[in-house]
Write a protein that binds this DNA or RNA. Structure first.
Lengths: 156, 156
DNA sequence: GTTGAAAGACCTAGTGA
DNA sequence: TCACTAGGTCTTTCAAC
């Protein structure tokens, strides 16, 4: 097994479990890993304190909350000064439709993950919000047809 | 405010809060929304039962668990029969490095989100796992330089 | 749908081994 | 690391509005 600096096998197992289901009680985890509740409690406290666990969130069913369309949009800017990049980032993260924004290597500068109700709503976002930002050379959009796998858990 | 079938303003506010921080107690939520604890408890029970809340997970700091490199890889297959698509999906989701797999519209078939330790590990995954799957015409990989925004919360 | 109250489960910190 | 303890907090249920 790949080891991670500062973590032993018990820590790894705890992280694996909590990545899948953070509602597990210390009692349940202690039973699964055959350790005492006090041990599990202390481990989790340390994992949070040291920043291994960032936060705990609820994941929603996007089809039930009217966000049925996910787009990945590749954005190319017409300049790569620190200021141009910074300004784009500052503005694009303000849009609630933008769930993720990554600066990327390769043939475009930013990759955005955008959630909207439908194609009409995406079109509106595109024309009235995204495309109005300065210094954009091109935006290329790809749409999710189906989710085959959708994990927030990292392989451990 | 955009309304969602079956949810009132209180439900929406609860979902907003839990998407950001699922460790909020019913007590804290009831205080924020000026409702009784029992009401909040009943609403959350219903939201889970009806599938609005899929699950609750811990999000880890990927730099601390040795998954510093995130790649987005665009895969194009050399055939689009139902069987070819299905076989690719069946195999690719088995790789633990693949966190997300989407079938897409446009100039490629699948978009993969891949987490590895570093470029060496990605290379190994690419050569020994991904590229060995049948019916692949091309794989184009893009790497994350920096995360400007990284949300799991949908806009509500 | 909402409420307050009551009982039970769990968390958390402490001790000593 | 563990077992045990005890106090405090939260969850969960329920009768009543």
């Amino acid at each position: 097994m790949m080891t991670i600096t500062g973590l032993d096998a018990t820590d790894i197992e705890i992280l694996k479990l909590l990545q899948k289901d953070a509602l597990l009680t210390n009692k349940e985890i202690s039973f699964k890993l055959r350790k005492s509740i006090a041990t599990i409690h202390e481990r989790i406290r340390r994992l949070k304190e040291q920043g291994y666990i960032n936060r705990v969130v609820a994941l929603l069913d996007r089809t039930k909350i009217d966000k049925s369309l996910i787009a990945f949009s590749q954005v190319l800017l017409n300049g790569h000064t620190a200021n141009t990049l910074y300004q784009f980032e500052q503005e694009v993260v303000k849009f609630p439709e933008v769930m993720e924004c990554f600066q990327m290597t390769g043939t475009f500068d930013f990759l955005l993950r955008i959630a909207t109700r439908d194609m009409d709503a995406y079109h509106h976002f595109y024309r009235n919000k995204l495309a109005t930002l300065p210094n954009i050379t091109s935006i290329q959009s790809f749409f999710v047809l189906s989710e085959t796998k959708s994990d927030t858990a990292y392989p451990l």
